[in-house]
């Protein structure tokens, strides 16, 4: 699906800001991980950030695959490093409204008792980032997460 926000070569940005689109498929995960790894290495971000950021990106991406099955667009991943922050924006250009910031809080003790580990992915995302925001406009959903960096 064409949308005007992305260049035709599917990737743009300066070293401290990179954007890339990925097909809406589980097979994209390997390339998504490589993209994040490349960004972290290029920007000399501490290694300890790589695992939580890859985990957050995977959980958000697979959440789209699970709950936005009717969507046809690619998913874009926008990574930015500022002096003290790592910022990731994930955009779905063909989404129904689904505000993950309003998902119910997971009671980990309860799910162990009930023997059903529901909502683990989003719970983990909320634990691993410093802030998470959701915007929805004209079928475009944008999830923005911020992780503070050690200096």
């Amino acid at each position: 699906m064409y949308h005007p926000n992305m260049p035709e070569n599917n990737m743009e940005g300066e070293p401290g800001h990179m954007v890339k689109e990925f097909p809406r498929d589980i097979s994209s995960l390997e390339n998504i991980f490589s993209f994040v790894e490349q960004f972290v290495a290029t920007n000399q971000i501490q290694d300890s950030v790589l695992y939580p950021v890859q985990l957050v990106v995977e959980e958000l991406f697979t959440n789209i695959l699970k709950y936005q099955r009717g969507g046809e667009s690619n998913i874009s991943l926008d990574l930015e490093k500022t002096d003290k922050k790592f910022i990731m924006r994930m955009k779905d250009f063909d989404a129904e409204p689904f505000d993950i910031t309003k998902s119910r809080e997971v009671d980990t003790a309860a799910y162990i008792q009930q023997k059903k580990p529901g909502g683990l992915g989003i719970h983990l995302v909320k634990q691993l980032v410093d802030s998470i925001e959701y915007e929805y406009n004209n079928r475009i959903s944008t999830i923005t997460i911020i992780k503070h960096l050690e200096r």
Binding site: Y51, T62, K115, L120
Partner: peptide, 16 residues
């Protein structure tokens, strides 16, 4: 090196 929520869910279900 890495595990995400689906892998955790498999360990969880097996343990239960």
């Amino acid at each position: 090196d890495y595990i995400s929520s689906l892998g955790l869910g498999i360990l969880f279900s097996t343990q239960i």
